[in-house]
Amino acid sequence: MIEDANVRLADLLDRRSDGHEPAPEAALAALFEGGVFVPVTETGSVVFLPAGDQPPTLLGFTDPALGARLLPTAAGMVHCDAARLRDILEKTGVAVLGVRSGSGQAVFPEQVLRDWAAHGPGAEMELSWSTDPVAVALRDALARRIREFPAVRSVWVAQVRWRVGGEEHLLLHVAVDEELPSASADRLMQVLLSEEVRLGPEHPKVGMLALHTTTHADTIAQLDRQGLDTVRHEAESGQVQVISREYDAPSAPPASGSAQQPRAMRRWFGRS
């Protein structure tokens, strides 16, 4: 049985008491990466928080000792990883998950958890090179702005198709030299989508997954082999390198049904 506290999630929730609101994606990533401790009865049944006529709330604690102190009526605390949380969601119809840390708390609605379980880290997805104008605009914007984020080493731009449900959208994998969840990756996405690429209802959705250059080295190597548009940043020299099939085949046709480009962009082959 895993008994280690989810320190990362606890830190994010504790910051709320100081007025620092964590990005929802960061909290969800920490939740599914480290899990939570769920109270159970002596027979092993999950303890839910009654709320009158409202649907029940699933309780979770970032630390088993914290859970035992705050809910002494529970017989024990069971660690639930992403797979167990998904299983509880599917079998109980719980409305929300309420998570407590030492100084903070968060409520995750059932639909948000289900979406993250299907589309978040660990979900099965197929990545492919995209010629969608939004993907090209993101690649070019990355070439202009990546120097502003020294911890960011590489970004891959891909069309992603989730095998469960078949949903498609664009996804950026961001490799960083800092602890996850990455503040640099979050800020980079905010800059891209607020200052560079303005998305409209006709454009595809854009998501982001942050990767640690050491912890996720195997995943990074796999991304490099998939022929995706890639923007690399060498912090020491400041050089930015852009890799794209577009430069090998400039006449490549746009993706079928691609949306109108949000803004005109220049091509970038490499900068120093």
Rank of each mutant, 00 (worst) to 15 (best):
L70H: 00
A137D: 10
C80M: 08
L97I: 00
H119F: 13
M77H: 02
L138C: 05
S103R: 14
P121I: 01
K91T: 14
H79R: 13
D115P: 00
G67P: 06
L138H: 05
A95M: 13
R145Q: 15
T57A: 14
I88C: 05
A151V: 04
T92D: 09
L66D: 03
A83P: 05
F61H: 11
A141C: 00
D87W: 13
R145P: 09
D140P: 08
V99E: 06
A68N: 05
S103E: 15
T92A: 13
E148W: 09
V134L: 10
R69S: 12
S154Q: 15
F61T: 10
A82S: 10
T57D: 11
W116E: 03
V160F: 02
E126Y: 04
R114S: 06
S101K: 06
G67N: 06
P150Q: 09
L138Q: 00
D81T: 02
G93I: 07
T73E: 14
L127D: 00
A83R: 14
L138M: 03
D132W: 01
M125R: 15
R161M: 05
V157K: 09
A137K: 08
A106Y: 05
E110V: 08
P72Y: 03
S128Y: 10
W156E: 09
L142G: 07
R145W: 04
L70K: 01
G104L: 03
R114E: 07
T131A: 14
R144G: 03
A158R: 00
T57C: 13
A75P: 07
A118E: 08
E148K: 13
A65M: 12
G102S: 13
A158K: 01
D63P: 06
S154I: 05
Q111N: 03
A117G: 10
T92Y: 09
W129Y: 15
L59E: 09
L70T: 08
L58M: 12
A143F: 03
L59Y: 08
D132P: 07
R114I: 09
T92C: 02
C80H: 14
W156S: 04
E90R: 14
C80I: 00
R86Q: 13
T62Q: 07
S154N: 14
Q105T: 10
R145A: 12
E110T: 13
T131R: 15
A83D: 11
L97A: 05
A151Y: 02
A75F: 12
T92E: 08
Q105A: 12
G98M: 15
V155P: 04
R69N: 10
T131K: 11
A65Y: 04
L71V: 10
P121T: 01
A151I: 00
G122L: 07
V136P: 00
G60Y: 03
G102L: 12
L71F: 05
A65Q: 12
R153F: 02
L66S: 02
L97M: 08
L89V: 05
G120T: 02
A123Q: 03
V136L: 15
I146H: 10
Q159G: 14
V136E: 15
T131I: 03
A117S: 15
R114D: 09
P121M: 01
